[in-house]
Each structure stands twice: as structure tokens, then as C-alpha cells.
Design a protein around this nucleic acid. Structure first.
Length: 849
RNA sequence: GCCGGAGUGGCGAAAUUGGUAUACGCACCAGACUCAAAAUCUGGCGUUCGCAAGGACAUGUCGGUUCGAGUCCGACCUCCGGCACCA
């Protein structure tokens, strides 16, 4: 053992030791309680970046902590290895995506091992291997069987850069989640998964995870699902049998409807205008709106003008019997609700703006309830009302100008009017959702093939389970044309119908890679199962995941898909809970200064502000890097990279290491010292600090306040350094206190810097290694308690003095001690003491006048 | 525009139920060691007045509650993030 701290030496040594002893491999056959610690699986791009390092350092700290506490900790890793970059590499450089991916995995696995992350490598999985994606296909078929996977032609998001379709979640904000390109709309026939069937549960079950997932993630999921309570109302058309169905959350404002407005894509437009002289005008307008939308993608310009055209058709308000015009306008979305709205300018900002522009009547039908007023005796005239309005009044209030409904409150009217609509057959209460079905087809090679065959006579035929997996061909031609490369592989496409045996063709699209990551952590439980995705009984022992750690960029992609998938698996009977992840931590970004600027941005190759983990390990060691990453900021905050900061971490490790070495011999020679014969003030203080630190660190671990844990360990170390005795001449009491402090320090450092901790643990006389002989230290509350307290004394809330007192001091004694304190007496002199506030064990405040 | 989150030293950040604001680290300054530098060690380090003892002022701004506010309440300002015609 070396006296000096050489990280490269001890890190290699312990990494080998862990590998040889299979230190982190776990089995189900274990009496200890389980803990499932999971980090988001990486895409094998070829290189770990600092965001990965942070992610895995957090997870590993928790895994070690739980292990030392006696849990059977499942801590696995794998590869989200299907996807776009492999295919881009193939297109650009002509490499085989499979070789490229496998090489990247080898390299990144090496990097993880050099970081010393304690994974159970025996459970490693990779999405691109047939033994994995076979089960993606199996799940797809189960969904198909149940009508949850279906094919339809519809306008979809198309990334012109990557030449593939994207789901709504992947094109949130109108841009491709991966490359940032603006998405276009294209009409294509695609596979969809009915995530909308689970929309209600996706909102409702948030209750189960409310306190243990970050609010910002839950909020984005709620917004994304976009649950909205309201009602459908059918407006019959004058001179026609047709009717138009609208969705509204404000049926209470229906007497104020002065138009019906349709989206440009509304299917009824053509029919309505059959014999209308305005037909051409309206259709031209609708075409223009559609063209504008296509050009813009999903984004909306802030100063985009509302535009519309009157169709000349009249609709009848079922409540009032009034005839109102039907318009087509650009501000109504076909994707939401029914693609048609009733326009109530007085009570909706958009309708108000539209009505002003086209001089539609603005009729006020809701009044603010003024103070003390329960109802309005008479309806004000509509003329009076419309003149007064500068803005739409969008709040709830009391109904006016609403026939029999006048005088009702909005809340009641919303419920009762929907009931009346239902009773009379022209509508009903309804809930709509913003979320759309998940488009899973991708026109790519590097993914799991959709297991469907098309037969001339039998039509669409699912591949039988026994024929899975539908394997990807060895190679394909990457033209970058936008059609799936699989379409060009004759051996793949041409097959026989599983039904009738006739010649047939395979589906040539592959599945969204988010399918792979929706259920992967169940596969870790039973990774080599050849007859099922996983054995439910085995998965039951590990899942749900106790702690999941990753970036928040997946808040409405992976994290919503995996919640959906779990609910589907529950309905298949594979799992018995609703939510796959008990606790979620979204770590902050790792940023670095952009050269020559004052800006801190996420590390990236293109900005040239990246830091290579390998270089960092070579320069400072994995232990110091991990310690710094966890110390520099709270885990959920942005982490600003600092070269000098990591040097500080090295310094700390070196100092602890030197200290252990300094005492090591003396501690080894007095291993029989157990009792504490004559505790001096110094040893009492050290023991107190030790036990206070154990208590603080243990509680901070439960909330993953890792930065303050490191600070506390540094404080404990500083206290050990303050021991003045030389090891050789130290008393038994001092030796005992130092041993207790150093052992606790090393054990608690293990989650942060495991290699150094293992090495020091050995120095301290434990040959077996941390997992053999180390146990998380226990805090003794009595030892942590101070025997003498320093009580601050305030005068009128300002700190003026301090008095010493025993913890069991009475209020009255404390009061007297404060009042007789010399400094306090000087302040009180010449004043009246109004009162004295005594907070036991905390402080005294003397109020004077 | 709407919704979230956050504003504390030069910097990253600490601070139980309201109870000693600035722990821990980085940077910086001084000293020791050295021919010198680096490394290491020791000490200092919110602002300000003071030789000192000590005082005044400080947690984005203004106000409030309280014996006492970084923490609670109200209004506002700024920054970051998300969503954006969702009827």
C-alpha cells in the first residue's frame, strides 16, 4: 500500500477486484430487502459526456449508500441502441450501423468502468439485439390484438432533416427533439398506439406519484395530456339536415354565441357549400389557411392575424333558437375538440378579437357578481353591454340575457345546461384531451421492424408469436431518400402470408425507439429470458423502480410513454401496479463557459466547451471527478464546470488519505481499544462531531442532498485534523475517537469516491473490502448531543451576547443567566424590560423599551 | 400572454417548526517552507466606521405580521425553464 494518493493505481486495482468478485451482481435469492436504483439508459453515441457522468455518479452514490445499509441493490445499465445517429453514420460514412453501435458500446462500457460505476454488468441489455427487440414486437402484437395499435392515414410530423416521421411528443414546439429542425406536416399512412385510451389514467394516477416526482415534470405531463371538462353541443343547420358539433368549456355563455367557426380542414365545409354561390371563395380561403399552416409547422406567430370568411350558412342555437352565421377561420384548430367552436366574443379573448375585426355582434351574457349581490333582477339591454366592453370577460359570474337561465351562476349553469342538452338530444357533458395517439412508425432501418405482413387475399396479417423476432437484414442501402431502407431489401420484404401461405410483403417501417425504452427496466429483472419479455414473478421482486434518475428533457416523451406502457402491461396481467417509478430525480445540466464569452452553456462539441471524461479521469482520477460533480451544486441545479473546483476535490481526498495513513499503524496496534476510559474535552468534541455527521449524512441521503453530505464530511475531516495528539503518543481515548471518526468518514465517503474508500478501509485494518466488512455507521443521539450549549442572547432581536448553559437548563435559569450577563446588563440599563422570550436550548430575546 | 421555478459574499452554495445569516468549497490576500516557483501547511476573507473594544448596515425592491423574517403574507422587479390561438 502506498503512502501517497495515486488515484490511477488504486482505481484500477479496485475495479479489477470488483469485477473478479462480481461485487455488484445481485440475485433474487437474497433475504435482504430490495432496492431498485435506476439511471436512464444511454444512447451509444460513442462517448460519455459530463451529463452522463453526473447522472451515473448520483445513481451510484445512492446504490452504494443503500448497499452499505444492507439492501439488495439492483443497479443495472444497458443501451438504447436503436436510433438515428447509427443510421446517419451509415449514410455519411458507409459503415454498418450494427458494427458502429457495437464498437461504441465497447468504448462507452470501458468509460463507465473507468468511472467505477457499480453496475451489475451481468444484466446488461441492448435494444438493437434480436433477443431484446423480439419483445418490442411481441408487445406490438399484443397491442394490435387489443386494438391498441392501428394504422391510419393522417397528417404527421415530418423531420425534413432526418427524413422520418416523429411523434407529437418528439416534435413539441414544432421542432425535432433530436436535431431541432422545424417539422413539416405530411399525409402518410402510419401505425399509431392508442395512448389516448389511457389519457384519463395518465392524469388521474399522478396522484400516486405527486409527492415523489418533481412538480415541473408532473405539470408538463398534465399540460401535455390536456384534460379539459366541458360539453359537446350540436348546432342544427338551417335549410339542411346536417348539424355541427362544437366543444365548449363554457356552455354557460351559449346565449352570447354570435357565430359558429370551423377549422379550415373541417370535413363539413364541402358539404355545406354544395349549392352555395360562395363555394369557391370559401374553399380558396380554406386552402390558403392550410397552406399557411403547413409552411409554419406547429408554431404560431405572435402577431398572426385572425382571418375568416362567412360561409353564408346559418346555424341554430339549440338553447335560444337564434340563427347565427357559420364562418371558417384560421384560429380554430382541427386537432382539438371537434374542429368547430361557438364564437362568444363577449367572453373569449380570441372570439372577441375576431368579432372586432369582422364586426360580429358582441353580446354580454355573464356579469361579475358585485359585492353582496346574489342575483340580477333584470337583464340589461345588449346595446348597453356591448358598448362598454374593451376586453372579453372570461371569468365565471352570473348569467344575464340568457332566457330562463338568467340569474344562474356559471358553475351551476355549466352542469345544468349540459344536462338539458343531453336530455333534449343536442349534446352532452364531455371531457376532451389534448394528447394524440402515439405515432410509432419510422421510415428508418435501424429499429425494430413492425411485425406485420400484407397479403393480397388476407390483407393485414400479424406475424405469429412463434415467428418472432422479425429480424433486421444484415444490410440495406442507405439512400437517404425518405423511404424506409428496408423497402429496398428484397429478402426482407418478400415473405409468405402466415395465414394462407401465399406470397406477401412485410411492413417496411420500424418502430419508434421510445418503444424500446418504455419497458427496458423490466427486462433488467430477467434479462436472458427467452420465452417472455420477463417473468412477472421475478419482476415483481424488483419493481417498481425505487429511484429513477435522469434529465428532465424526457418529461413528456420517455416518462409519459413508460407510464403508459406500464399501465398496458398491467392490463396484460404482467405487473400489478399503475406507476413504474416511485421516486424520480431530474438532475440539472452540466454547463461550461463558452470560450471567449461569459456564457455558460450545456457542454457540446459544436460549442467547443465539452470536457472529455477520460481526460478528466486521467488528470484527477474518477473518485475526485465524481466527488466534485456531486459536491459542486445540488443535484437538480445546473452544474458549472470548474477545473479549480475539481482540484479542490483531489486535495480533500489526498488529505483524508494522508490522515488515514498517519494514524493507520497506531490504530492497527490498538485494535482492542473499545471503551472510552477517560474522555477529554477534545475527544468528546470529536465523537460528538462524528455522530452529528452520521445523523446529518444519513438524513440528507434520503432526500439526495448530496452536496451538503460532502460538506459535512469535510467538516468532520477538519475536526479530525484538529486532534493535536501525535498518533504514537495518543491516549486510548484519543485513538478510539479518531478510529471512530475515520471509519465513519471512510464509510460515508464510499458512495462518492468508492475506490479511495476501499483502499482506506483496508488501511484501517479491514482486509475484506467495504461490502464484506463495512456497514453504514449508526448515529448515537446521546453522543451527538452537546453537553454545553452556547445560547445566543438578543436585545430587541439583535444579537448582543452569548451565555453557556447545560442542555437540561430550565427556562427560568436561562432567563436569569441572560439577564445577569454583563453585556446584556449594559444594554438593559436605563430601560424597562418589557418581556423576556426564552426558547429552550435555542435563544433568549430580551425586549426593552 | 399563461404556467412553473429561482433571486443570499468575487463565485458554486449552506441555514430543523420563523430563533446566532453566509457552514463547506473555489478564488483571492498574508505568512511559513524554498535560491525561486509549484505543491503543502498556518492565518485572514459580506460591506462599512473604529487603533481597539465594539458599532451600523446587509439574503432582488417596497410594505406588512411578529419579541424575532432568508424563511410567513401582499404588491412589484429581474432571471431561468416550459407551453403557446387547446375553445
Amino acid at each position: 500500500m502506498d503512502e501517497k494518493y495515486f488515484p490511477e493505481k488504486i482505481e484500477t486495482k479496485w475495479q479489477q477486484h470488483w469485477q473478479q468478485t462480481k461485487a455488484f451482481e445481485v440475485t433474487e435469492d437474497d433475504p435482504r430487502p430490495k432496492f431498485y436504483c435506476l439511471e436512464m439508459l444511454p444512447y451509444p453515441s460513442g462517448f460519455l459526456h459530463m451529463g452522463h457522468v453526473r447522472n451515473y455518479s448520483i445513481g451510484d452514490a445512492l446504490a452504494w449508500y443503500k448497499r452499505l445499509q444492507g439492501f439488495n441493490v439492483l443497479h443495472p445499465i444497458g443501451w438504447d441502441s436503436f436510433g438515428q445517429p447509427a443510421e446517419q453514420a451509415a449514410i455519411k460514412r458507409g459503415v454498418n450501423p450494427r458494427d458502429w453501435t457495437e464498437e461504441n458500446i465497447v468504448h462507452m462500457r470501458g468509460q463507465m468502468q473507468r468511472l467505477g460505476i457499480s453496475y451489475d454488468w451481468s444484466r446488461e441489455i441492448a435494444a438493437h439485439r434480436p433477443d431484446y427487440y423480439k419483445w418490442d414486437q411481441w408487445f406490438f402484437l399484443k397491442m394490435y390484438e387489443r386494438g391498441l395499435a392501428y394504422k391510419k392515414k393522417s397528417p404527421v410530423n415530418w423531420c425534413p432533416n432526418e427524413k422520418t416521421v416523429l411523434s407529437n411528443e418528439q416534435s413539441s414546439g414544432g421542432v425535432c427533439w433530436r436535431c431541432g429542425a422545424e417539422v413539416e406536416k405530411r399525409d402518410l399512412e402510419q401505425w399509431f398506439v392508442r395512448i389516448t385510451d389511457y389519457a384519463e389514467q395518465l392524469v388521474e394516477d399522478i396522484k400516486q406519484i405527486e409527492s415523489s416526482w418533481p412538480e415541473k415534470v408532473l405539470k408538463r405531463q398534465r399540460d401535455w395530456v390536456g384534460r379539459s371538462e366541458g360539453a359537446f353541443v350540436d348546432f342544427a343547420l338551417k335549410d339542411s339536415d346536417q348539424k355541427i358539433r362544437v366543444f365548449t368549456t363554457r356552455i354557460d355563455t351559449i346565449f352570447g354565441a354570435t357565430a359558429i367557426v370551423l377549422a379550415a380542414e373541417h370535413p363539413l365545409i364541402n358539404e355545406l357549400l354544395e349549392d352555395s354561390p360562395l363555394k369557391n371563395q370559401v374553399l380558396t380561403f380554406a386552402e390558403k389557411v392550410k397552406a399557411d399552416k403547413a409552411a409554419r409547422g406547429r408554431t404560431v406567430d405572435e402577431d398572426e392575424q385572425k382571418e375568416g370568411i362567412n360561409t353564408g350558412v346559418l346555424a341554430i342555437n339549440p338553447f335560444s333558437g337564434e340563427s347565427i352565421p357559420v364562418w371558417v377561420a384560421n384560429y380554430v384548430l382541427i386537432e382539438y375538440g371537434t374542429g368547430a367552436v361557438m364564437s362568444v366574443p363577449a367572453h373569449d379573448e380570441r372570439d372577441f378579437e375576431f368579432a372586432q375585426k369582422y364586426s360580429l355582434p358582441i353580446r354580454r351574457v355573464i356579469e361579475r357578481i358585485s359585492h353582496g349581490q346574489e342575483s340580477i333582477a333584470h337583464d340589461a339591454t345588449s346595446e348597453d353591454q356591448s358598448i362598454a366592453m374593451q376586453h372579453a370577460f372570461t371569468e365565471y359570474g352570473i348569467l344575464v340575457n340568457s332566457g330562463n337561465w338568467s340569474g344562474k351562476l356559471s358553475e351551476a349553469a355549466i352542469i345544468e345546461m349540459a344536462k338539458q342538452a343531453e336530455a333534449n338530444g343536442f349534446g352532452q357533458a364531455a371531457i376532451t384531451y389534448r394528447i394524440r395517439d402515439w405515432g410509432v412508425s419510422r421510415q428508418r432501418f435501424w429499429g425494430a421492424p413492425v411485425p406485420i405482413v400484407y397479403c393480397e387475399t388476407c390483407g393485414m396479417v400479424p406475424v405469429p408469436e412463434k415467428d418472432l423476432p422479425v429480424e433486421l437484414p444484415e444490410r440495406a442501402e442507405f439512400t437517404g431518400s425518405g423511404e424506409s431502407p428496408l423497402a429496398g431489401v428484397a429478402d426482407f420484404v418478400n415473405t409468405t402470408c402466415p395465414n394462407c401461405g401465399a406470397a406477401a410483403r412485410r411492413d417496411t417501417d420500424t418502430m419508434d425507439t421510445f418503444v424500446d425504452s418504455s419497458w427496458y427496466f423490466f427486462r433488467y429483472c430477467d434479462p436472458r429470458n427467452e420465452s417472455a419479455a420477463f417473468d412477472p414473478e421475478i419482476a415483481k421482486q424488483w419493481t417498481p423502480v425505487d429511484q429513477y434518475i435522469g434529465g428532465d428533457s424526457h418529461a413528456v416523451m420517455h416518462l409519459i410513454y413508460t407510464r403508459f406502457w406500464t399501465k398496458f402491461m398491467r392490463d396484460l396481467g404482467l405487473v400489478s401496479f399503475d406507476e413504474p417509478v416511485k421516486k424520480l430525480l431530474t438532475q440539472g445540466m452540466v454547463t461550461n463557459r463558452v470560450q471567449g464569452t461569459d456564457e455558460w452553456k450545456a457542454m457540446s462539441k459544436s460549442l467547443g466547451n465539452g470536457v472529455d471524461p477520460d481526460e478528466m479521469i486521467a488528470a484527477f482520477g474518477a473518485d475526485a471527478a465524481r466527488l466534485f460533480v456531486l459536491f459542486a451544486a445540488p443535484v437538480e441545479n445546473e452544474l458549472r464546470w470548474s477545473e479549480t473546483g475539481i482540484e479542490g476535490a483531489v486535495r480533500f481526498l489526498r488529505r483524508v488519505y494522508t490522515m488515514v495513513w498517519r494514524w493507520n499503524e497506531r490504530l492497527a496496534n490498538s485494535s482492542t481499544v473499545n471503551a472510552v476510559p477517560e474522555p477529554s474535552a477534545g475527544t468528546r468534541a470529536l465523537r460528538r462531531k462524528t455522530h452529528q455527521t452520521i445523523a446529518k449524512v444519513t438524513s440528507d441521503f434520503e432526500d439526495l442532498h448530496l452536496n451538503t453530505i460532502v460538506a459535512a464530511l469535510m467538516e468532520l475531516f477538519n475536526e479530525v485534523s484538529a486532534v493535536e495528539a501525535e498518533p504514537a503518543s495518543a491516549t486510548d481515548a484519543e485513538v478510539f475517537a479518531v478510529r471512530e471518526a475515520l471509519e465513519a468518514l471512510v464509510l460515508m465517503l464510499a458512495p462518492f469516491s468508492p475506490h479511495a474508500a476501499e483502499e482506506m478501509w483496508q488501511h484501517l485494518g479491514h482486509p475484506g473490502g467495504l461490502l464484506d466488512s463495512g456497514r453504514w455507521p449508526q448515529a448515537d443521539p446521546e453522543l451527538a448531543q452537546r453537553e454545553e450549549l452556547e445560547i445566543p442572547v438578543q436585545v430587541n432581536g439583535k444579537l448582543r451576547s452569548r451565555v453557556l448553559a447545560l442542555p437540561e437548563v430550565t427556562e427560568e435559569e436561562l432567563r436569569q443567566a441572560a439577564l445577569s450577563d454583563e453585556k446584556i446588563r449594559a444594554f438593559i440599563e436605563g430601560h424597562e424590560v418589557v418581556k423576556v422570550i426564552v426558547v429552550p436550548q435555542r435563544l433568549v430575546n430580551v425586549v426593552i423599551r
